[in-house]
Design a protein around this nucleic acid. Structure first.
Lengths: 330, 330
DNA sequence: TTGAAAGCGATACCAG
DNA sequence: CTGGTATCGCTTTCAA
């Protein structure tokens, strides 16, 4: 920066002002910009952060980057935060709470302005770190009873109940549920809970639950899970799956077994992924605005720092819509 | 840090040493660690970077985070770089070269130790920025004729040629190719090029190419693309798709049209995504070690800074294996 | 093994 | 509108 200042025959401060877009005489600005171009100068963000006491980072943690719904959420966040000149610090917890804590600790070292996490379950260590950090925190994809700070999400249990009601209204009575065997995917567990609640509420008899494979289960697990379900309860007439991925795997397995979907057996998914629209038959599912979760989170984060303390208090929980989408499979 | 030092009754330097894992008397270290825990102290990474003159960042740019092959590559990178205490600065170019340049410029502000890009095509501005940055650069997923610095990838054109040979050996003669209409997906274009070359080399007659939809095309585009192909060339007996996503969409459309795959028409994909293994029929495809690309890139990056100048020169291009995987669809 | 002082490259603040 | 100076929190370097 000193070099730029020297070439432009101004002080470092003026260079700094040009970079920050503060008021500078047009002629001076011109000289500085030429010097910057000439040297190919790129300001050091670390020094800026140290000096100004605030970084441009926003920390974001998702369980998985590969999953299309979380990457949609990240895109939504980017669309709001990038124009503000903020830089996402992206982390992938791989559905692990311990790993989440490690990542939070590591990201906090960069003094992010705010942080967005996925889900409402965290280790005590994570909560402790977050409290000490004194920055806005958003929990996404869930509606925690007791949020750390802010939340943007929906009730996965209620959404699953709505799907049971849909199937029940369609005349299905022997409804099974497929999900992973481990407890890593909390949102999947919530959906299972909702299924159990609504089966009871609707008087649909004993639940038929198959838990198979490491959560979150993917396409691959759909086939063996369907097999297990039909082995234990051969007269099942509808299958709810914890996600569209497993629903797709289940449908393909139905075809292999010579079962027609939905005539012989109905299959429903969750998430409204692209595969639900493209598979044959198309998959009845619960549509969730993943991109919107990202955008709303970004907006909340922005508001939380702008309005420092007051404006933020206006809205601490943003509830995201979802809807059962009727397609061919159920 | 001064607070920690005060409580532990040592100097800031000793705290710094404890944090960095340098040699400190066990008793002293103990005191310092207790003070750190007591205060919940987290060192400021920006200050450290500024002072030491090197950051912990590694910049990584991929065309899309949602695409499973690129997210596998990111996982591979993470697996190598994270244990070294490095922090990924992840960016999503959205298949845009201008956007790539913006992201490179913005990431360079954080003085990353090295940077990994996808593909061999970049704007002049990007190349210029990268040269000035004087850090190791890896181009992934391609084998540039003239790499900026290092490269880890394979020839998409050769891989596509191999698939044509496979189909030809299987007895298919009227082979079509489906890909996107725009030129954004350079690797897709390379595959098209390979298809054209090998069709000629094998004397398989006029190529049958349908370019439809914004690249990179996804599941959704498979159906209309297949329709267009069969309308123009009704006697087509095999379809190569630029990716497994579009292959899947095409297969589902075959089913809707009452065509059996592969008996009436064969379909092949590219990438060996999960859907290729789960769909019915399973999809014949080209398997690429996306995770391995990430790992090798990470290793190269690590070597490039460790061996400063010499060790790196040993291997500037890493060629990644691929293979045609025979499944049911072709 | 530990400490003191200098300085990394920018910005905040106050003068002119 | 522009410049000087102090300072952000840490590491480097050198000395004890």
């Amino acid at each position: 920066m000193a070099d730029v200042a020297h070439i432009a025959r101004v002080s470092k401060m003026t260079v700094s002002r040009v970079l920050a877009g503060h008021s500078v005489a047009p002629a001076t600005r011109e000289r500085v910009e030429q010097a910057i171009a000439q040297l190919g100068y790129v300001a050091d963000a670390a020094a800026g952060a140290l000096s100004s006491g605030r970084s441009d980072f926003v920390a974001v943690l998702v369980p998985s980057l590969a999953s299309s719904n979380f990457s949609d959420t990240v895109r939504g966040l980017t669309s709001v935060l990038e124009p503000e000149g903020l830089q996402l610090l992206l982390g992938d917890t791989d559905y692990g709470l311990e790993r989440e804590e490690r990542l939070v600790r590591s990201m906090l070292r960069y003094q992010p302005r705010c942080i967005a996490l996925t889900g409402s379950q965290h280790t005590d260590g994570t909560r402790h770190l977050l409290e000490r950090a004194r920055i806005p925190v958003v929990e996404m994809w869930d509606l925690p009873a007791k949020p750390i700070d802010l939340a943007v999400g929906f009730s996965n249990a209620r959404a699953a109940r709505e799907m049971v009601r849909y199937l029940s209204a369609k005349g299905y009575r022997k409804i099974g549920f497929l999900c992973g065997a481990s407890d890593l995917d909390r949102r999947g567990l919530e959906r299972l809970k909702g299924y159990l609640q609504e089966m009871k509420a609707q008087g649909l008899g004993e639940p038929r639950v198959v838990r198979l494979g490491e959560s979150p289960i993917t396409m691959t697990h759909g086939a063996p899970a369907l097999d297990a379900l039909l082995e234990q309860w051969p007269d099942t007439d509808a299958v709810m799956c914890v996600s569209d991925m497993s629903a797709f795997g289940a449908i393909m397995q139905c075809h292999r077994r010579g079962l027609r979907v939905p005539r012989d057996i109905a299959v429903a998914g969750f998430g409204n992924f692209e595969v639900a629209l493209c598979s044959n038959p198309t998959i009845t599912t619960v549509s969730v605005d993943a991109y919107g979760i990202g955008r709303r989170t970004g907006e909340l984060l922005l508001a939380a720092q702008a309005g420092s303390t007051h404006a933020a208090r206006a809205q601490r929980k943003v509830v995201i819509d979802y809807a059962v989408v009727e397609r061919e499979s159920a």
